[in-house]
Design a protein around this nucleic acid. Structure first.
Lengths: 241, 241
DNA sequence: CCTTGACTGGTTGTCGACAATCAACATATA
DNA sequence: TATATGTTGATTGTCGACAACCAGTCAAGG
């Protein structure tokens, strides 16, 4: 029997669309989410849209102001700084758990991804680098095989680091070689099955990556991260798919 | 000007009520959440109830089965096991951050709470012990002063460890003295400002606490945690407040 | 000039009703 | 009897409409 992709509910689809629109920067931080407009954009009634927005709110991607208007969340420098040690802790835990059970094949897979990053970098394809970077970290999250951990990491990445993804594309290319080098060292530690070394290296790697990013980021006077485009005006989420 | 408690929205109130009902065990794991019934219980229409349930779903307190019916989540032994290292990592991070900035006054506050736990234990008031235990850990989460961390811990505690709270009340009393002792040692490490020691002690403490609990917990043949009452039948959340 | 109150347009909150789906039972057909 | 096909009741998904609320404007009154 052929496998069909299970049809997703209206709410899920809207949630995913909006989620992508926010994390990709198509909907800029601070811009409003008006139910009536989204209703027209998606061609559905307000109920499923409200539910989708509530989910985004729970994720921290959307905030509600004093007068209950919904906005795409603005991230401050402090938000980013706060997230650094948390993500570093979680990823290093993932590394520790993964180190105890990783197979040769999986190490080779990591190695392959790292080579692909190098390749993409030499071709100037920085977007692909960012993508592969996420893939690299996803692998040992999977190897760690801990649902609670997976969930926690995803929550952090989703709620706060989406702007990292969005900016990586066009400006952080200078930091990529360091990442590749650190990945290589982590791989060697995995090969040696040195659990403690892996753990501390991943912690440092994550801290390095985020701090490098932090240095290169621009914040306005209120400490709010700025995207490239004009601010404040709501832009549509193109209902892809 | 006197400070008024800001009135909460319908959805928030329903969310809190249901959340409490689940974490307290009033709504047992596996039991269904039927919108029509809740509609009657709360005396509102289905829209806000649906949104509240969606939030519970995002929290992991409610799951949707293959036929879209909503159930209070059943926790397996694996869920608990997965959460142990994650919470241990996060709390030890909190301890590390807190150790760097904790004041004498705050250490005394922790000391006071620990004494209160001891007092409550000697009076046989185990529910109060559980409550104070949470308070103890809340303090250094606050001292750590990291929103991302706070959020991550809260998410873990809320999504999975609610049953710990629910069971602590009536059976885990034997583990309390060990907790008190470990708290005491952590306090001494704080006083010495020994960051590394605090960090490792808190990690071990959390692992100990959860593992002690795990040993004393009962799971049925499918690994599903059992509460005291009858199973399967939905019970009402008393709309407190 | 300042305050107050009424009106307006825009937005979110809530509701009742209908459509779609599914489990369970009943019925028909071989 | 065994399988296939309606039918029913329960439950969730979606919708359009109305109520509540707020910012902004404007006019009346002091």
């Amino acid at each position: 029997m052929a496998e069909f992709p299970k049809p997703k509910s209206m709410v899920d689809q809207i949630y995913i669309s909006l989620s992508n629109a926010i994390t990709s920067g198509a909907l800029e931080p601070g811009c409003r989410l008006v139910e009536q407009e989204l209703q027209k954009d998606f061609g559905v009634s307000r109920a499923p849209i409200r539910e989708a927005i509530r989910l985004l709110e729970a994720d921290g991607l959307v905030v509600v102001d004093a007068y209950k208007k919904k906005h795409v969340r603005n991230l401050t420098r402090e938000d980013l700084v706060d997230n650094i040690p948390v993500l570093a802790s979680l990823e290093s835990l993932a590394a520790r758990l993964a180190a105890a059970r990783i197979t040769k094949k999986q190490i080779d897979e990591l190695d392959g991804i790292n080579r692909e990053i190098q390749q993409a970098f030499s071709e100037g394809n920085f977007a692909k680098c960012a993508e592969l970077n996420f893939a690299f970290h996803r692998v040992f999250l999977q190897v760690a095989d801990n649902k609670a951990l997976h969930r926690a990491v995803r929550s952090i990445v989703k709620s706060t680091l989406w702007l990292w993804l969005a900016s990586q594309y066009y400006k952080n290319s200078a930091t990529i070689p360091s990442s590749i080098e650190e990945h290589e060292q982590i791989l060697q530690a995995f090969r040696r099955k040195d659990v403690h070394l892996v753990e501390s290296m991943v912690r440092e790697h994550i801290e390095n990556v985020l701090e490098r990013f932090l240095k290169q980021s621009k914040f306005d006077t209120e400490g709010i991260y700025l995207f490239g485009g004009t601010k404040g005006q709501p832009r549509l989420a193109s209902p892809e798919n």
